[in-house]
Computed example of a mutant assay.
Amino acid sequence: MLKLNDLVKVKSISEIASTLDFSGCLNGLPFMPEMAEYAGKIFRVSLKVEKTCVDNPTMYMAEFKKNDVYFLEDLRCSGKFHDSCQRGCRIFWKESWLEKVNDEIFESHQKTSLSDDINLKLKVKKDEEIYFCQSTELRNATKPLSAKEKIFKLFKDVKIGTYNFFEALKLLILPLSRKFIKKIKDQHPRGELTKTPVEVLNLQPGEIVEVRSIEEILQTLDKKGKNKGLSFEPDMKIFCRKQFKVRTRLDQMILERNGKMIEVQNSVILEGVTCECFFTFGGCPRREFQYWREIWLKRVPVNKEETTINKSKSFAEF
């Protein structure tokens, strides 16, 4: 088993191809064509993925088959071969696709390309409408966890260094307390509108923005807590009044629950602002990007930028 901070080399395309079935999967998890550029290169293991959230068709926590999946640093899918999906999902890596490196070896910059053999195996679509990727296939690559198994996994996460003891304790207490409080008072940010407004800022990657106050954001939401169908989630409140850099625009993305590509308007992804799953029982390490309507943000003039741009709020600060 690989450990946190181990140096590993992604195996060659031909070696990886030998592990895949006719759909380009290993134990239900696809090796996507976007991953081929990393073949032969060296990275550090950032996490052993003991569990992950799955949104197909509803949200639940699950374990990968064989329990042999890792994150390498913060490698994310470019969406290049999936019609430029912009979700930027973290890439899951099966241990069979990796080789531990014992000595310090400089990363190889040798260009890699898809061989004809693997190109025939790698699917990007199930049909004209439904896409095929690691996100859409999580249901087939995992098995659901019971509450008891989630607690066991959390202890395992502490042992391997994913969380410290106090973080693990919060991941048990916060979800339970939220569930109790929800019976008394709904904490989901909700507005009063029936028709929500739009603001077009045409934000571009690299620009600095400030997240508006929760009071301002509430004025853009309907009674379900959405603006044009996009939810402002409870854990997004911690980013209010803080400044961040725009990572990318969000014009289209593949939905995990049904594999369909949807168009998204007037929205962006902010650098380092991810879902930390504070309120998910047992936690999830996936760190999916949060999605931000431009109306929830305001552009920061260059001369008013903070010297240090805020990063995603740490778990310890929550």
Rank of each mutant, 00 (worst) to 15 (best):
67 N>D: 12
68 D>M: 08
69 V>T: 00
69 V>G: 04
70 Y>K: 01
72 L>F: 02
72 L>G: 08
74 D>R: 14
75 L>H: 08
77 C>D: 10
78 S>I: 00
79 G>S: 06
80 K>G: 11
84 S>F: 15
85 C>M: 09
87 R>W: 13
87 R>I: 03
88 G>E: 14
88 G>P: 06
91 I>N: 04
93 W>Q: 12
100 K>H: 13
100 K>T: 10
103 D>W: 03
107 E>M: 13
112 T>S: 12
113 S>F: 08
113 S>G: 11
116 D>Y: 15
116 D>T: 13
117 D>M: 09
121 K>Q: 10
122 L>R: 07
123 K>W: 02
124 V>H: 06
124 V>I: 05
125 K>C: 03
126 K>W: 15
128 E>K: 14
128 E>H: 12
129 E>C: 07
130 I>G: 06
131 Y>N: 08
132 F>R: 08
133 C>Q: 02
134 Q>V: 03
134 Q>C: 06
135 S>G: 09
135 S>F: 03
138 L>K: 04
139 R>D: 01
139 R>P: 00
140 N>G: 03
141 A>G: 03
143 K>H: 05
145 L>S: 00
147 A>C: 12
147 A>M: 13
148 K>A: 12
151 I>P: 00
152 F>C: 13
153 K>L: 01
154 L>K: 03
154 L>C: 04
156 K>A: 10
158 V>A: 10
159 K>E: 11
165 F>E: 14
166 F>K: 14
172 L>Q: 09
174 L>W: 07
175 P>I: 01
178 R>Y: 06
178 R>N: 11
179 K>W: 01
180 F>T: 02
180 F>N: 06
183 K>S: 04
184 I>E: 01
187 Q>A: 02
189 P>T: 04
190 R>G: 00
191 G>E: 09
196 T>M: 07
202 N>T: 08
202 N>K: 15
204 Q>T: 08
206 G>S: 08
209 V>Y: 07
